[in-house]
Design a binder for these strands. Structure first.
Length: 761
DNA sequence: AGCACGCCGACT
DNA sequence: GTCGGCGTGCTC
């Protein structure tokens, strides 16, 4: 190495936006490379940092030496550094924390315990060793087992000979076996999967696969595969992936949540065998580590995972597949707020790879990108088994106003349809996007709702558990308490949740076998699989579920879907409310009739004329899109504008409000400075400047109290920055964060920056 | 994030 | 007079 690097630039996993220059002692110079972890002194602490590249000593008065180099090979490919840097810049997040988020827990975060490769005691026979004296029965059994297998884990031996540990030691002393520690590979997969061969494609699928394959090797491209439910998207994914693998490139498959990883994984494993690795937060730290290492060293070239798998340490990515690309689970809503769907596109662009975004109900954003020429559209309009799409009947819930109790929510039409379906021995799915029994418990004495102590929400009655529960913070009180305001014991159980529907269905159809699928019933490990199995084996006649039932699971025996109330998400104070509603309705409706019998859907709503409901009835995405995109344009919402939301929270209501107002004032000051000598508008107004192009300004909305003004004891405020110009928006946010450290940090109040926010409540 | 420095109230 | 509260600023 001519010109050895003496200084390196290091990122540390702390909320600091600087990187730091360290000197490398002579003895370690040959060991360092970008992407390696190093132990560095930091103040009076020691930290694990990440080498970003060569560093510069210019203008730095004090440079300290690194203490140690922690890996002989980088934990992630150096080629991923530009990806991390891009994310750090875009999401305004410290690069060290970005990298820390990317690495699997346990690889050696901070200075916590290090989960290295797991090892086990392993015994192997020494060939041709001379047996001096006859062995005891147990020792002979151990020797027999070892010679027949050529070596075994001592743990396995102990299953044959209970005293194996002792015997192996004795045999080692006699020079007959050699004992060593071996790394073990922890297999996260369940049962072996029988191999499977590529299916014959229908013409639509064939066209999709050949278009994607045709783009491979020719640089970055994004395809949006819009395929109705049951149209065979997964087969398209697999055949495209097979071609990518054949070209010796890696494939990354993202699915929205862990429950769907296993289904996708089974299908991919059947096709790609040991090439498949999985990455998601459901794996134990050890399993994750092993999967990571397999991917890192190129043993697994097809990676399937949830959101965080976007960080898989693959080299030479040829294809990134994002299944159910509209799903909001791709957005991380804690510490580091990123969107894995968007980052799939960024990572592919950097790698010159092809992206395949798939969905039955594509996001407005992605369809806009198709229409503006950034993405290329592929369509699967036909279901593979040629079933017709289900017929959707709308029932107006306003007509039920005079009905009592459950009859307000089970219309005669739905009741009749359920009766007919059950009489035919077919299965029913009822969807209601709200769990619990009564979602609005109200005191009959004083009219007060039962409220959470820590949050600005009503508690939900969970009758089975006998508690009122807060869905925000988990706070719960016994359901037999009296009203906190007036002491009355008469608390009305208003509001409908899945648990109440379950009770009602059991009463209406006493002979039907009823099951419920929501976060409460699948909390127990294995419960979800039991429900799915129960459905397949026809041990369940009626399934009642939340959102969860809309997500990708295949329910072949269901011929009737009842949507109890389609409007719940329609009134959310969120510009995406219509989009979310359309998606969930279309997805739930798509659960009907995936087997060989036609399906039908009864959709109950208070807003039958609403364009979202009408479009969902006709399963006509483009009609929905055309109306929705007009609304987005009128109010300058994404995709026409970009947004950054500042989320401010603190325990003290006054301090939080004051802080939010200070940050708001600072934003306006910065904006005024950036856009020249004109003053800003009156406080609280949209600040726009005379004489310049209004559409290119950054709008500052707020601060306002969040719709959920308190969660888990934290008072919440928000400021929304909005602009048609991404660069302007980012410039303002960067100035705010980087140049005003003191003004935006406080002991009592925290500020989170959410770039491209999803949940605005 | 930590950890030091520095500046004000209430205790031996 | 010192102990300790917390606001401010820095860590190569």
């Amino acid at each position: 190495m001519e010109n050895p690097v003496t200084y390196i630039e290091v990122a540390v996993p702390l909320p600091v936006f600087n990187t730091y220059t360290y000197a490398v002692p002579e003895s370690m110079r040959a060991l360092i490379a970008p992407g390696l972890q190093v132990l560095v002194p930091f103040g009076r602490r020691k930290l694990i940092g990440y080498i970003l590249g060569p560093g510069s000593a210019d203008g730095i008065p004090k440079i300290r030496e690194i203490i140690d180099v922690l890996d002989e090979s980088a934990v992630f490919p150096a080629a991923m550094l530009p990806f991390f840097q891009w994310m750090a810049a875009y999401y305004l997040h410290p690069i060290g924390e970005v990298i820390c988020e990317a690495l699997p827990g346990g690889i050696s975060k901070k200075k916590k315990a290090v989960t290295g490769p797991k090892t086990e005691r392993y015994a192997a026979p020494i060939p041709d060793a001379v047996v001096a004296a006859p062995l005891t029965e147990a020792r002979q059994a151990v020797m027999d087992a070892l010679t027949s297998g050529g070596g075994m884990a001592v743990r396995e031996l102990a299953k044959i000979v209970p005293s194996a540990h002792r015997q192996v030691q004795a045999l080692a002393d006699k020079g007959l076996v050699v004992v060593s520690d071996r790394p073990v590979y922890r297999d996260p997969f369940g049962d072996p999967v029988p191999p499977d061969v590529p299916h014959k494609l229908n013409p639509e699928q064939y066209r999709a696969v050949s278009t994607v394959v045709g783009a491979m090797g020719a640089g970055f491209a994004v395809f949006l595969l819009a395929g109705v439910t049951g149209s065979g998207k997964t087969e398209v994914y697999m055949q495209a992936a097979a071609e990518a693998v054949r070209r010796d490139t890696a494939v990354l498959v993202l699915v929205p949540e862990i429950a769907l990883v296993s289904e996708t994984e089974r299908r991919f494993r059947a096709r790609f065998g040991d090439d498949v690795a999985v990455l998601h937060s459901g794996l134990s730290a050890g399993e994750r580590y092993d999967q990571w290492v397999r991917i890192r060293c190129g043993q697994s070239r097809v990676v399937i995972g949830a959101r965080s798998a976007i960080f898989a340490p693959l080299t030479d990515i040829g294809l990134i597949i994002v299944d159910e690309e509209h799903d909001t689970s791709y957005k991380q809503e804690s510490r580091f707020r990123y969107n894995a769907r968007d980052m799939a596109v960024v990572r592919a662009r950097q790698a010159g790879a092809v992206v395949l975004l798939g969905s039955a109900t594509p996001s407005v954003q992605s369809v806009y990108n198709v229409l503006s020429g950034k993405f290329c559209e592929l369509n699967l309009k036909r279901r593979i088994h040629r079933q017709a799409m289900p017929e959707i009947h709308i029932e107006d819930l306003r007509k039920q106003k005079e009905s009592r109790g459950i009859w307000r929510f089970i219309t005669p039409a739905l009741h009749l349809a359920m009766k007919e379906t059950l009489e035919r021995g077919e299965q029913v799915l009822l969807f209601l996007n709200r769990r619990g029994y009564a979602t609005w418990p109200v005191c009959a004495g004083c009219g007060q709702a039962v409220k959470c102590r820590h949050c600005d929400v009503t508690l939900i009655l969970h009758q089975g558990a006998g508690v009122y529960k807060c869905h925000q913070c988990g706070y719960a009180i016994k359901s037999n308490v009296a009203c906190a305001t007036c002491g009355s014991n008469a608390i009305k159980r208003l509001g409908m949740g899945t648990e109440k529907i379950e009770h009602a269905v059991k009463a209406l159809f006493p002979e039907a076998r009823v099951a419920r699928m929501d976060r409460d019933t699948v909390a127990r490990k294995g419960a979800l699989l039991e429900i799915l199995k129960g459905l397949r084996h026809r041990e369940i006649d009626v399934l009642i579920g939340t959102q969860m039932v809309a997500k990708g699971h295949d329910f072949p025996g269901i011929t009737l879907v009842g949507i109890i109330c389609a409007d719940l998400s329609l009134s959310f104070p969120d510009f995406r409310a219509g989009e979310l509603t359309f998606q969930v309705l279309a997805q739930v409706a798509g659960r009907a009739g995936r087997g060989d019998r036609p399906g039908r859907v009864v959709l109950q709503t208070y807003n039958p004329e609403h364009f979202t409901i009408a479009a969902a009835r006709d399963q006509d995405f483009m009609t929905f899109y055309r109306q929705e995109i007009g609304f987005r344009q009128t109010f300058q919402y994404p995709p026409f504008a970009r947004m950054i939301q500042l989320k401010i929270s603190g325990r003290d209501p006054e301090k939080t409000r004051e802080f939010a107002e200070n940050v708001g004032a600072l934003c306006r000051k910065l904006q005024g400075r950036a856009t020249g000598p004109h003053g800003t508008g009156p406080l609280g107004n949209k600040t726009a400047l005379a004489g310049s192009d209004l559409s290119e300004q950054v709008e500052i909305l707020g601060p306002i109290e969040a719709p959920l003004s308190r969660i888990a004891g934290q008072y919440r405020w928000q400021i929304l920055l909005k602009s048609t110009r991404s660069d302007q928006l980012h410039r303002l946010a960067r100035q705010l964060i980087f140049d005003n450290g003191a003004a935006i940090s406080s002991r009592h109040v925290s500020l989170a920056v959410d770039v491209d926010p999803f949940f605005m409540m």
